[in-house]
């Protein structure tokens, strides 16, 4: 067994008991609130299913954040700009039925059904560091499928150089898409270079802590690219297409000076308005120390070669 194959138990065994209990109390409370609210418009969130997963050598051995931290501290502007807004507002999203349309430069265009993702693939626990562009970070036990193994089924043409992703637009269920002054242009879009998309670390996540994703985390299926800033991990995906040209990316369009297409985690390239040299690991409480941000979020050994010869200050 090679040295790096640190034995990682399945996520369900890692979750501290207190967290499970907390979560139940939390969900019971939320259910109570929903009942008390009884406006009749809010639909209950899909019941989360337990997932059968296998562990992965690509997981970190760092301790994951609690389920509560991961699911109450979110950036998902389709449900509001506050960190707590997605947890409050995303319950209204219906995630079944759900299909992803796959097209562009492929020989087998088609669709991916969420049920197929959940049942026809081996789901892997991937415990990844997650670094937000806002200089905070978490450790998150995703459950997902390497994007490469999904892409392979569609027989991508040789001319395809990029993959474009698109989030659902459904203003009646997504409060943030409903406002008079939209905070971002919808749909939220993101993109990866083909080699980034095919990299073994890149996954489509369908679960968290061994269960299907809660809505605020991007249910039912989202992208996770652990060496990039969190906003590259587009949520609630409905469309994937393969292109020759670099596809548009929402934050990059919103402010190209501040958010690059690549958005690789890089402590040496500051956001124009704040430093990226350090980060605050969520979960440490009021007095937690800052930690140094690692190049490529600590995944440099696996991904640095993708960017060989590139000026990362220019292609940030």
């Amino acid at each position: 067994m090679p040295v790096y194959r640190y034995p990682v138990p399945p996520a369900s065994e890692i979750t501290p008991k207190s967290v499970f209990l907390n979560r139940r109390a939390f969900m019971a409370g939320a259910a109570g609130l929903a009942l008390a609210g009884a406006s009749g418009t809010a639909r209950a969130e899909e019941e989360r299913q337990k997932l059968a997963t296998v562990s992965s050598p690509l997981s970190t051995d760092e301790t994951p954040n609690s389920y509560e931290d991961i699911t109450t501290y979110n950036n998902f502007y389709e449900f509001g700009t506050g960190k707590g807004d997605p947890a409050k507002n995303a319950g209204s999203l219906t995630t079944r039925p759900w299909t992803i349309e796959v097209g562009g430069l492929v020989n087998n265009p088609g669709t991916i059904d969420i049920e197929d993702l959940l049942t026809k693939y081996t789901l892997e626990d991937r415990i990844y560091r997650h670094r937000c562009v806002e200089a905070w970070s978490m450790v998150i036990p995703w459950a997902g499928i390497p994007l490469a193994s999904i892409i392979d089924k569609f027989d991508v043409q040789g001319s395809a150089k990029y993959v474009a992703f698109e989030t659902l637009v459904r203003p009646e269920e997504m409060t943030g898409q409903n406002s008079t002054f939209p905070i971002l242009p919808w749909p939220y879009v993101e993109g990866l270079r083909m080699d980034e998309a095919m990299h073994p670390l890149t996954i489509l996540a369908v679960g968290l802590y061994g269960e299907t994703l809660p809505n605020q985390s991007g249910a039912p299926v989202r992208l996770v690219v652990p060496w990039k800033y969190g906003f590259k991990g587009i949520k609630s995906i409905v469309k994937i297409s393969f292109t020759e040209e670099q596809p548009p990316a929402t934050w990059n369009m919103q402010n190209p000076r501040e958010y690059g297409f690549y958005s690789n985690v890089n402590p040496n390239v500051d956001h124009p308005r704040w430093s990226q040299a350090t980060e605050r690991r969520i979960g440490g409480g009021l007095f937690a120390s800052r930690i140094d941000t690692q190049m490529f979020n600590g995944y440099g050994d696996q991904v640095a070669s993708l960017y060989e010869g590139m000026d990362l200050k220019k292609y940030f």
């Binding site: 954040n65 509560e68 109450t72 501290y73 960190k83 905070w136 605050r280 409480g285 009021l286």
Partner: peptide, 14 residues
């Protein structure tokens, strides 16, 4: 804050 009831990121909330 002292009672750890400011959510996941208490420092920022404070």
């Amino acid at each position: 804050g002292v009672e750890n009831r400011l959510g996941a990121d208490p420092m920022k909330v404070l």
